[in-house]
Each structure stands twice: as C-alpha cells, then as structure tokens.
C-alpha cells in the first residue's frame, strides 16, 4: 500500500512518524517536534485527532484529559502587518 500522509500541511506520512518513533524512542510531544506533524499552517486543526491517535499507538502513552498536543495562540496564522498593528489603533 502507498504511504499515507497524516499531516497534510507538512506532508508527514505514517512511515515518517513510525520511523522517527523507532529511531528516537521518544514521547508523543518529541515525535511531533521532530517530524513537524500537526505543526503546519492549519495549526493541527485537520490532523490533530489523527496525529494524536498515531502518536498514542506508537508511543503507548495514555490519552489524558489534557489536550495531548498543547494549543497556543495565535490559533490562526497571522500576517506580521496584522500582528504589528498596521491595522490597529
């Protein structure tokens, strides 16, 4: 079967995730940082549940009540001119 992309924004495949997990034997968070899965333009909105499932299945970490991969502002990509106040008072 062809490899399946999990994170569309960064084009991270299931194999990429599995290989990285095997190589570094790491936590879900570290795996995300190494592969950039869920860290692309959409902020993980599309792939977050999928990435969570893959990471849980690979690392065996329990899904907890905390959102596994932390959410931080801005939750939408922002242009520097918008952020810098060109349009603000």
């Amino acid at each position: 079967m062809k490899d399946v992309i999990i994170c569309r924004c960064e084009e991270v495949s299931l194999t990429d995730l599995e290989d990285a997990a095997k190589k570094y034997n790491c936590s879900a968070r570290e795996l995300k940082l190494r592969t950039r899965a869920g860290m692309g333009f959409c902020g993980g909105r599309t792939c977050r549940p999928a990435v969570d499932k893959v990471l849980t299945s690979i690392t065996g970490e329990d899904p907890t009540n905390n959102i596994p991969l932390k959410v931080a502002p801005p939750v939408r990509p922002l242009s520097l001119s918008d952020l810098g106040g060109v349009n603000h008072d």
């Binding site: 399946v4 569309r8 549940p49 999928a50 918008d82």
Partner: peptide, 26 residues
C-alpha cells in the same frame, strides 16, 4: 485579524471541526 475587541464576558461558540480519516492519496 482586523481589530482587538474588549468585553466583560466572552462566549465561545466555535462549533466543531471534522476529524480526518487519512487514506493514501487524500
């Protein structure tokens, strides 16, 4: 993206997003 809005209270009613079922070629 256009302004800052200040308020005493906030109601977050952002609904849902769709979970993906990734398959090769999606």
């Amino acid at each position: 993206n256009t302004e800052h809005v200040a308020a005493k209270t906030v109601l977050i009613a952002t609904g849902a997003a769709e979970s993906a079922a990734p398959i090769p070629g999606w």
